[in-house]
Design a binder for these strands. Sequence first.
RNA 1: GCCGCGGUGGCGGAACUGGCAGACGCACAGGACUCAAAAUCCUGCGAGAGCAAUCUCAUGAGGGUUCGACUCCCUCCCGCGGCACCA
Length: 789
Amino acid sequence: MPYDHKKIEKKWQKEWEKSGIYKTPDEVKGKENFYTLVEFPYPSGNLHTGHWYAFSVPDIFARKKRMERKNVMFPIGFDAFGLPAENAAIQRKINPKKWTYENIDYMRKQIKSMGASFDWTREVITSDPEYYKWTQWIFLKLFEKGLAYQAETPVNWCPKDKTVLANEQVVGGKCERCGTEVVQKNMKQWMLKITDYAERLLSGLDKLNWKEEIKEAQKNWIGKSEGAEIDFEVKNSKEKIKVFTTRPDTLFGATYMVLAPEHPLISNFKSQISNFKEVEKYITEAKKKTQLQRQKEEKEKTGVELKGIKAINPANKEEIPIWIADYVLMGYGTGAIMAVPAHDERDFEFSKKFNLPIVDRPLIDKDEIVKKVGGKKVIQYRLRDWVVSRQRYWGAPIPVIHCEKCLTQAVPEKDLPVLLPEIKDYKPRDDGKSPLAKAEKWLKVKCPTRLPDGQECGGNAERETDTLDTFVDSSWYFLRYCDPKNPKAFASAEKLKTFMPVGLYSGGAEHTTMHLLYSRFFYKAMFDLGLVPKELGDEPYLERRNRGIILGPDGQKMSKSKGNVIDPDEYVEKFGADTVRMYLAFLGPYNEAGSYPWNQQGILGIKRFLDRVWKITSPRSSTLGVESPKTPSVFPRSDVARLLHKTIKKVGEDIEKFSFNTAISALMILLNEMEKVGASAEDFGVFLKLLAPFAPHLTEEIWSKLGNKNSIHTEEWPKYDPKLIEETTFELIVQINGKVRDKFEAPAGISEAEATSLTLSREKVKSILGDKKPSKIIFIPRRLINFVI
RNA sequence: GCCGCGGUGGCGGAACUGGCAGACGCACAGGACUCAAAAUCCUGCGAGAGCAAUCUCAUGAGGGUUCGACUCCCUCCCGCGGCACCA
């Protein structure tokens, strides 16, 4: 009989909630604290398969750690501000706040249906004023230190979402959220100086226990390159043009220079450039192109010579022409290059197209030439400062005030949080202004700045109307979990010390160069500001593991338009939460960037397994506690014990590695064996404990049916006996010339001489060897013997 | 183009530190139970040859090291991911 998953699962979820067994105290005597974290979800409205994969599988790990007597913090919350929620609300013509909080209520229920061991008393919602007060507070700390600043720069503008985006949110020239092609605009925006931390973000990776591919992705994003800055004089002028090059050793081969079309020096030479009209035209054209267009036009080079001016190659004093071309980018290096067509593919192409000279001069000592021409060694990073202001409603208001007299001022700490006002029209606008700009009452304030005489300025002022990017909210949420209700601080130093740093952080690969990079930066900056206790170090996550993605049954990414979306609720209804979570864990190794198609048949295998676990304990067919005289034992009793202890070892080690699939396979093998030869009640209890993290409801039900009063989840994780695992015999593989020809059971401690004579007495071996003598014998204890003839 | 990860049956995937390739599960085939079906249980299941014991081939391709290679080295092909006219 299959078990009644609906009844059982509901019953225990209620029971756990009542008893609060997953509540994590700050400290427990004699227990070590362990912080395991999963990325909190957007309240998008419905829990999908990806959420199940993201939450219920790492829950196995959290549960096992708890059974290992660790004081495990496994918190959850909602990343509730930001575009996804807001866009969905607008689409449905609902107020974003109402929409978000209704979704949270619904999704909270859905998440609870997983039977995950989250501590809900630590729940954090980033759109709660109690939370974003501290987002604003931290922002102001960065502002005080000059790490948050406002500046006019070229930024990415998404015409559909009508807001600026950070570089990290532009993927292949398109908006990461809606896929619209972004355009470049010059706008005054708030930015965070993440570039100040480029080197530490890079070098900090070394000591982290992260997979190579995750580290590499961050390294590529930061994009360090070492080179030199060298000044080129402009003939008949005092101006110099600074170039950045990673190959100063090729300086003698520089036959021309190229400036980015946006280079500020161009206008200085207006009077000397004879073809200025043509130059201007080129600049205008270049500005019109989007990032994507510049990329799309492949490697077809365009450019215009600045006629009438020449530069001097500082190495050989030769006069060289100056060009402008859009293959040189203003945003990188100095926005100017020395072109060495003999050594650089792009320069080569350009010079071929425009008939510029190509000379192949011998290379020269790097360091020496830089010194000789008065250049200096510099390091460049690809990383740009993080644009955090958004022209959108649903976010934390940036807590500053613009006064006519005092200019831009921080909102005093006592006035935090700056509450997000309720407004009627929260739709984004085309003019680059936030919808908050229309909230007149909220907008106009008296300047609160204290003047030197102690008086408040009191002048006419306006609030900043942009809101903060969601990624700012999520850059510190893991700290709030440590002290979620604290009204006096974002988290006390004491509480931070009890749980930070995060022991294991599990999440999606898509966050590698966004959230993961941002939050590392935040933590480092907060560390420097003394907000994070020194002894914790400046890295928030000791270990990071990325999960793969679950595809539709057709092997394609799930999407409504393809009609291949799997609704987890449907499967929970049919088979139960235990089956769904265990199936997801069984699909393949979790800690890999792979992708697994959902197999509608495959889930049946897990369902069958759990039904068999149930059946083995039901009175009729039970072999529990019975020495089972009817089923003749194929294996001696000690072999079941051996398998049991091997399984304890394997399941434990596999969970640590996130190899849940092989752990489950080991449990299946053990069950198969116990069905065959029976098991004592005690042994079965051990099996149940091993299964408990995977199927928390079913195991709890059986555990209580077996007469236990406590929860199985508060039991101690079984220990294996190393002596029991040791085999007394092994199967000796007999190879002849490296090919397996025979195998037989031999004592574990057998010597080479014994093994040789035993093997040579085997009929099979005799018949193959004939009268040939082995020229060499290789004996590997506990494994094989190989005769070379 | 640079960097990283990977390529194993019909499918998802196993395989210690170089030592029986294909654990476990799905699918499939045959059988038991049943009036019948579902469910369940048992057996088989990489390819080829053979009545069979067994033999040969086989981990993307080709070479190498080794008594022995999915595993190490070289060359190449393919897939996925990051970066990319970044000087």
